[in-house]
Design a protein around this nucleic acid. Structure first.
Lengths: 337, 337
DNA sequence: TAAATTTGCGCAACCGTTTGTCCAATCATT
DNA sequence: AATGATTGGACAAACGGTTGCGCAAATTTA
């Protein structure tokens, strides 16, 4: 009811200067033990709480991190944000959220609002179609550091954390080869995507490791839609060589592919085996989960990205020491069930 | 590079008082048109942006809403937060996020930090085990309004939005009755949960509508763990009456139950049929998705809750006009596949 | 033409906290 | 005992913007 107690209030009651009270509360050595105790006691008694907005204003700092990402309903991002939040909280930072819903315009607007809210820094995973990065460049002028994660811009001089699909893909293909599969199809993503290129590279290298020939016609670029996946499957199943295993771009694609295979009368894990990349946490509930899955460590990515941002903010890292962390993906074999 | 322009800066250049500039920028009628124009032009030229932290401080308002919920990786909540965010953004509010991970201690800490960050209001869905509400009561002292959603406290005089499981349950059971099922099992949640009681009530009413007798021994309270579900299934399948359909507490429970049924050699949708409550967006990828599912409208709940909070903040709603919105759940029949 | 209004803007206080500087009193040094 | 060093605290400005009030000039009214 009465206004929340302020430092001035405490100062007045104790016949001290506000500055003294402030210092006393911060255990400043220049303040005598006796007054320090008196101040702290009264503060406790009055349930004094520093007014953060005043501090933010005064310090030009809000202890708030802005997060811009496409879509929380995607498991990858909801895991990533947990990593972000946990890490931020440890350093007493809060997390301001904005979903772009994969819309560049929304993304721009969110960045603008967050800038106005004076977030100390930004963690960003790009909207699918964002190709113009002006709204991020602009932040340099305001000295707001940005760390990108997972979906990173094609731009030099940025901080980012991303996962490299190559390592996981090598492992995935090797896993299949080891199990005797020789003709392995790949339902890949759009060709321009770095993630697709990495998958291709992984496929090639895995074959090379076994001194086997890489057959590009087994590697199909699809568009990640259900129809696109079905078309890719059609192609693959019609291939002159008999395909016994398929590496799918992600779990969604994998499921669509499985469905198609079932329709064609194939028996999963017998006639044809699937390996995928983990986007889903619920694979244990899926009808035919992939036999193995490439883990991309979303939590870890969020964590790393946040750590970098925090170091940037604390000055431990200078803004032009561009951090570009690549987290190797890794194959995880599904537990038998 | 030079510090961002301030009102004072503009005032100095134009030989005006800061107050005049401020009013000019706000189109205050007492400021002459000519000076108003001059000010606005220079502001544009200098790319003046009001310092929000200064405004927050001065106005004692942050245009920030705190969201406390258990777990974003649960589809229900990630949908809810979309509703929250979209609604908040429309009114130029930002959203500060905190996950309790279903831990009451974390929940308390988050609320504390958010209070210190001076959020204008809070949207809360309780951690599973929270039974003490002191950390929310405390907010009244600070005049921070709270609107609960979905997981609401058992406490009078609060604002909340929740869904009523009764209506959906009536529809679910009726759906099964209509399809000829006469002995319908229910795997319910913990007895104390309001949501469980609503399910029971719905079950009873649906039977009553058809002048059928409600058999309590068909309605099992389980604990939502996999093991609990399996025990419930054991009981149900051992029931003296032959159960042909089951209403499961949610999709997770449903899947565990399906798994058990399969192990027992039952054929899904023939020997036994499942109906559930939608927590998962991915039912289309599940092996045996429930035949129908009760929709709880998470997006809508988030939206409604936010609207109430915003009205509370704008004064359109007085804090003691307790809003208690119940959204009826509704059965959604799964598309054939 | 004098009085009453209106118009347009400046002054100053204020929001709560932090921090650089200055001053007085106390203490130690020689 | 005079000087210097240390201690403990006060003063005031600053962060950027808002707002109540006052006041002069311009305008209208009687």
């Amino acid at each position: 009811m009465p206004n929340p107690p302020t430092i001035k209030e405490i100062a007045k009651r104790l016949n001290l200067a506000a500055s003294t009270v402030s210092r006393a509360l911060h255990n400043h050595p220049r303040i005598g033990l006796r007054t320090r105790m008196k101040v702290q006691e009264l503060a406790r008694e009055l349930q004094y709480e520093p007014n953060q907005t005043a501090i933010f204003f005064q310090q030009k700092k809000t202890f708030t991190l802005g997060i811009v990402l496409p879509e929380l309903s995607e498991a990858f991002f909801s895991a990533a944000i947990s990593g972000i939040e946990d890490t931020a909280n440890k350093s007493n930072y809060m997390v301001l959220l904005g979903q772009s819903h994969d819309d560049t315009t929304r993304e721009q607007k969110i960045v603008e609002i967050m800038k106005n809210h004076r977030v100390d820094g930004l963690l960003v995973s790009l909207a699918k179609n964002t190709v113009n990065y002006a709204h991020f460049e602009m932040l340099r002028k305001y000295n707001i550091p940005v760390v990108f994660f997972d979906r990173i811009p094609n731009m030099p001089n940025i901080h980012y954390v991303a996962s490299n699909m190559e390592s996981g893909t090598i492992q995935a293909v090797s896993f299949l080869l080891q199990r005797g599969h020789r003709v392995i199809g790949m339902i890949n993503g759009p060709e321009k995507l770095i993630a697709s290129q990495q998958r291709t590279a992984g496929y090639q290298k895995a074959m090379q490791l076994q001194r086997l020939k890489y057959d590009a016609s087994l590697n199909i670029n699809a568009d990640l839609t259900k129809e696109g996946t079905r078309n890719a499957m059609r192609q693959l199943l019609a291939h002159k060589r008999k395909i016994t295993a398929i590496v799918a771009f992600n779990d969604y694609v994998s499921q669509d592919a499985v469905q198609y295979a079932l329709e064609q009368g194939l028996e999963i894990n017998k006639d044809i085996t699937f390996v995928s990349y983990a986007n889903l946490p619920l694979s244990s509930y899926m009808a035919f989960p992939p036999l193995a899955s490439v883990e991309q460590y979303p939590y870890l990515q969020g964590q790393k990205a946040t750590e970098i941002l925090l170091e940037l903010l604390s000055g431990k890292l200078s803004p032009d020491q561009y951090q570009q962390i690549v987290i190797d993906s890794r194959l995880v074999i599904a537990p038998a069930r």
